[in-house]
C-alpha cells in the first residue's frame, strides 16, 4: 500500500520556525535575555511584595492560633477567680516558647509575640436579666390532660397580663453570693513586630468568662 503525503505549506512554515537548524547569534541571545529581564524585573518585584504581605498575614494567623490556645484554656481550665491581668499567658498557652521563660512573651518562628490580658469584672448590679413572667394557669379539677376553656393557649395569649408581663432583675437582686462576682470581660492583646516590614502589629480578641463553677457547686 502506498501512502501519498500531501504537501501542507502551513505545516512546513511551523516546522521552519521551530526546527530550523540555523544557529542563534549572540545578538539574538542578548536581545532575548534583555526582553526576558525587562519582563521579569517588575513581575519579580510584585511577586516579592505579595510574598511579604502573605508572610505578614501568616504572622496574623499565628497570633490567632496563640489567642485561640490561651482563650480556650482561660474559658475551660482556669478558675474564674484566677482570671486577671497577672496570669502568665505564655505558660498557660501550652505552645512551645523559643525563649523558654515566663515573661508574657511567646517566641514563635523567631518572632516575639507580646501578650497582655485586660480583664474587666462586671459588677452584679450592672448585669440585668430579663424574662416574661410565667402566666397564671388555673389548677383544673378534672383529670383531663388538655386545658379547660380559659386555661388554653389561646385564652392565655389573649390575656395581655398573663401573656406579656416583662420582668427585669439585676443579678445583685437574684444571687445569694453578695460578695462574689459572676462575669468578667476579657480582652487578649497580642503585639509583635512584622519581621519583613518592621511595622508594629496588634490584634485584639474579646471574650467573657462566667463564674459557672460557683453556681454549679453552691447554687445561685
Amino acid at each position: 500500500m502506498i501512502i501519498i503525503m500531501k504537501h501542507n505549506p502551513r505545516r512546513s512554515n511551523i516546522k521552519r520556525i521551530f526546527f530550523n537548524r540555523k544557529a542563534i547569534s549572540i545578538t539574538e541571545i542578548m536581545v532575548g535575555i534583555a526582553l526576558f529581564v525587562l519582563a521579569a524585573i517588575p513581575s519579580f518585584g510584585y511577586l516579592m511584595s505579595s510574598v511579604k504581605q502573605t508572610a505578614a498575614t501568616d504572622m496574623e494567623n499565628t497570633a490567632g492560633v496563640i489567642a485561640g490556645s490561651i482563650l480556650d484554656r482561660i474559658l475551660d481550665n482556669v478558675e474564674y477567680d484566677l482570671v486577671d491581668d497577672t496570669l502568665k499567658l505564655d505558660q498557660i498557652s501550652g505552645m512551645t516558647d523559643e525563649d523558654g521563660s515566663d515573661n508574657n512573651e511567646l517566641k514563635i518562628k523567631s518572632t516575639s509575640f507580646k501578650l497582655e490580658l485586660e480583664v474587666k469584672t462586671i459588677p452584679n448590679d450592672q448585669i440585668e436579666f430579663g424574662f416574661r413572667k410565667t402566666p397564671y394557669i388555673k389548677r383544673q379539677s378534672s383529670d383531663s390532660e388538655n386545658a379547660d376553656p380559659g386555661n388554653d393557649i389561646n385564652s392565655i395569649k389573649n390575656d395581655a397580663k398573663r401573656w406579656n408581663t416583662p420582668v427585669k432583675l439585676k443579678l445583685s437582686q437574684i444571687t445569694k453570693h453578695k460578695n462574689k462576682t459572676f462575669l468578667k470581660e476579657i480582652m487578649l492583646v497580642i503585639k509583635w513586630k512584622d519581621p519583613v516590614s518592621g511595622r508594629d502589629r496588634t490584634e485584639k480578641f474579646t471574650t467573657m468568662k462566667a463564674n459557672l463553677s460557683l453556681v454549679e457547686q453552691q447554687g445561685g
Partner: peptide
C-alpha cells in the same frame, strides 16, 4: 398532680 398537662384545648 393537677392538670392541665398541655395548654391545648380538647379540640386542638
Amino acid at each position: 398532680n393537677p392538670g392541665p398537662q398541655y395548654l391545648t384545648g380538647p379540640g386542638d
